[in-house]
């Protein structure tokens, strides 16, 4: 499954980059996030509840950040274990481009899911991933650009 999008955030690039590396902000913005621990600058661990309609699956994710060219570009990869529901793994490349009045966040992500989740929900994964990433960036924009919230 592949996903890509471009989001405008009316903040300077450095601030966007910092926010994306802020555990508190991530915890607040990742849909269903119950716990997020920053083991180091590059290693994160998160526990979240994935809720899609009646389906609820608890996942624990290990995320590895690779800031190869901060703040322009970084990659992240992760592996999640959902117990009997299955597993998920994926990676994403995020680019932050300076534009008029703010930053364009461009990401390309690919993910695989396995186990029962894939067997039963395969047809809904693309749409769900789109929904969840939309939710994340909506929350992220709201969180880091407080004046946006009215």
């Amino acid at each position: 499954m592949n996903l890509s999008d471009e989001i405008f955030i009316p903040l300077p690039r450095d601030q966007v980059y910092a926010a994306l590396n802020d555990a508190d902000i991530l915890r607040d913005c990742i849909p269903g996030c119950e716990e997020l621990i920053k083991h180091s600058d590059t290693e994160l661990e998160t526990k979240l509840v994935l809720k899609i309609g009646p389906v609820k699956a608890k996942f624990s994710f290990d995320i590895l950040l690779s800031p190869d060219a901060p703040p322009e570009r970084f990659t992240l990869s992760g592996e999640g274990n959902g117990g009997t529901a299955g597993f998920a793994k994926g990676s994403a490349t995020v680019e932050l481009k300076e534009v008029d009045g703010g930053t364009n966040l461009v990401y390309e992500a690919s993910a695989d899911i396995g186990g029962k989740l894939a067997q039963l929900g395969g047809r809904l994964i693309q749409g769900t991933a789109k929904l969840l990433s939309g939710k994340f960036f909506k929350a992220f924009a709201a969180r880091v650009v407080p004046e946006n919230v009215d």
């Binding site: 009646p54 389906v55 609820k56 029962k116």
Partner: peptide
């Protein structure tokens, strides 16, 4: 809590333990 109408979507998901209600 969740409401159930005919149950033909929700009940299979519960039996497969994908939905916990």
């Amino acid at each position: 809590a969740r409401v159930i109408a005919g149950g033909h979507s929700l009940v299979p998901m519960m039996k497969l333990r994908m939905a916990e209600v």
